[in-house]
């Protein structure tokens, strides 16, 4: 229908994507060598452990915020149990590598899958609820998961599960983070994503337009849980020990805060807010007593002055740099 799609213009059409890919690869390589340590002219440069840890945390926070945004921002279902799925993923993957001797990749995948199944089991009864009722029910589900974990001796009960081998490294973090963002971006820019958005906008109208709202709410919930589970696996294999109380509802709040701060429904917003809050947290480590006070003030101030979040529902795209005003090929061009 349009000549633009022919092979000759491939580079032109995909300029933003290619630029982003090149940029990300550069970030990956630079940090890869910096974390490993390298020598220039006899001086050894290596990113210290503490900063490295925070970069890892940033990756995990991005995964969790973006996956929660799929549920809260895109599908419009206010869920407060994300930490519960993270816990399920963390424990499952840790059991896989520690007790069953499976490879890390299998552990992560198993963590994600078990969390996804939990997502479906929890989602089917609770997603009939709306708004605040759903929020409080999912919060309850998250807490129930935590209490159940405390009561399972096989995984160490309240004192936690250790020693978990340290298998998480920059390569895992980077590729899983990028993969998650790409997955969610591709999902929401497809007919499935539009179906989810239509449920957010007006559930009754969506149903009468042929959208099975339960199916899409559960689907979003299940994908969200999957990525939370994978992030939990990364988390577990970075910290040597995990305890059920790490995954209480405050952890869920943390990610909800990132999503709302970034702007509900804005992926780039979630990424920015997750990274930003990680940096804020890092900067506040020097004043441990006041850390949470300042954090809460930042939160209140941003909400009062930017109630729609930093990005609103908009995405940060290349169009603001005037490189390419049209979105990707799926949009097509009009016939008139």
């Amino acid at each position: 229908m349009n000549d633009q799609n022919k092979s000759g213009s491939f580079w032109k059409r995909n300029t933003p994507g290619i630029l982003v890919a090149v940029g990300l690869l550069a970030v990956y390589l630079i940090l890869h060598f910096w974390i490993q340590g390298f020598e220039i002219g006899g001086n050894k440069y290596q990113l210290n452990k503490y900063y490295t840890l925070n970069i890892y945390l940033m990756g995990m926070n991005i995964i969790l915020a973006v996956s929660l945004n799929l549920v809260c921002g895109i599908t419009g279902q206010l869920a407060l149990g994300h930490a519960g799925f993270m816990a399920v993923g963390a424990y499952t993957s840790a059991v896989c590598t520690m007790k069953l001797g499976l490879p890390f990749a299998v552990g992560l995948l198993a963590g994600g899958l078990v969390a996804a199944v939990m997502g479906i089991i929890i989602g089917l009864p609770t997603l009939r609820l709306k708004g605040d009722y759903l929020a409080i029910a999912t919060l309850g589900m998250g807490e129930i998961i935590r209490v159940i974990l405390i009561n399972i001796d096989y995984v160490g009960g309240a004192s936690g599960l250790s020693p978990i081998p340290k298998l998480t490294n920059w390569t895992w973090i980077f590729f899983i983070t990028v993969g998650t963002v790409l997955f969610v971006k591709n999902f929401i820019n497809s007919t499935y994503g539009r179906a989810c958005i239509s449920v957010r906008e007006d559930e009754i109208a969506a149903e009468t337009m042929g959208i099975n709202s339960t199916r899409y709410k559960t689907m979003a919930f299940c994908f969200g849980a999957f990525f939370a589970g994978v992030a939990g696996g990364l988390y577990a294999h970075n910290f040597f020990i995990i305890q059920p109380n790490l995954f209480n509802f405050f952890k869920s709040f943390e990610y909800l805060v990132m999503v709302v701060l970034g702007g509900l429904g804005s992926l780039t917003g979630s990424v920015l807010a997750a990274s930003g809050l990680t940096v804020v947290n890092l900067a506040l480590q020097n004043v441990p007593d006041l850390r949470m006070v300042v954090y809460s003030l930042v939160l209140i101030t941003v909400m009062l002055f930017r109630p729609g979040g930093l990005m609103g529902t908009k995405e940060l795209t290349f169009s603001i740099f005037k490189l390419n005003k049209k979105r990707g090929g799926d949009r097509g061009t009009s016939g008139n």
């Binding site: 909800l256 709302v260 939160l299 209140i300």
Partner: peptide
Amino acid sequence: ITAIGVSF
């Protein structure tokens, strides 16, 4: 979210 902030 603001209420959560006030709580913290």
